Simulated assay, not measured.
Amino acid sequence: MNTAGHTSPLSQEELENIHAWWRAANYLSAGQIFLLDNPLLEQPLEPEHIKPRRLGHWGTT
């Protein structure tokens, strides 16, 4: 038995939830590192939305 009390593999729903969390975390990380503006991509991505230098937020990602 693992520390969460489970004795069987994760269900399909649990795997899908973990995968959704992983995608969201990666999206937020990429946004912090690369974007200056338009983080929700409400407009088509333009060069002016992207940082000229990738600085900061590496510790949070």
Rank of each mutant, 00 (worst) to 15 (best):
L36E: 09
L41R: 00
R53S: 10
Q12G: 13
N2L: 07
L40Y: 06
A25H: 09
W22A: 01
P44E: 01
S8P: 11
S8M: 14
L15M: 13
A4K: 06
W58V: 05
A4M: 12
H19Y: 10
T3N: 07
L55A: 12
A20G: 05
A20Q: 11
T60C: 09
P9F: 13
P52N: 12
A25M: 12
W21G: 01
N38D: 01
E14A: 07
P47A: 01
K51E: 08
P47I: 05
K51T: 04
A4H: 10
G59L: 13
E48V: 05
L41S: 00
L28M: 10
E42N: 00
F34S: 00
S29D: 07
W21P: 00
E14I: 04
G56P: 07
S8W: 14
L55Y: 15
N38A: 00
L28R: 06
G56A: 07
L15E: 12
G59T: 10
M1W: 10
T61F: 13
R53I: 10
L10N: 10
P47Y: 06
L15R: 14
A24V: 09
N2C: 05
L28C: 07
L15F: 10
P39I: 03
W58C: 03
Y27F: 11
G59C: 09
W58L: 08
P9E: 14
G31V: 05
G56Y: 13
H19N: 08
N26W: 13
S8Y: 13
L45P: 04
E42R: 02
L28D: 08
L28P: 00
H6C: 08
H6F: 13
D37M: 02
A20C: 06
E13L: 15
N26E: 12
L28N: 06
D37G: 03
T3P: 04
E16G: 09
L45W: 05
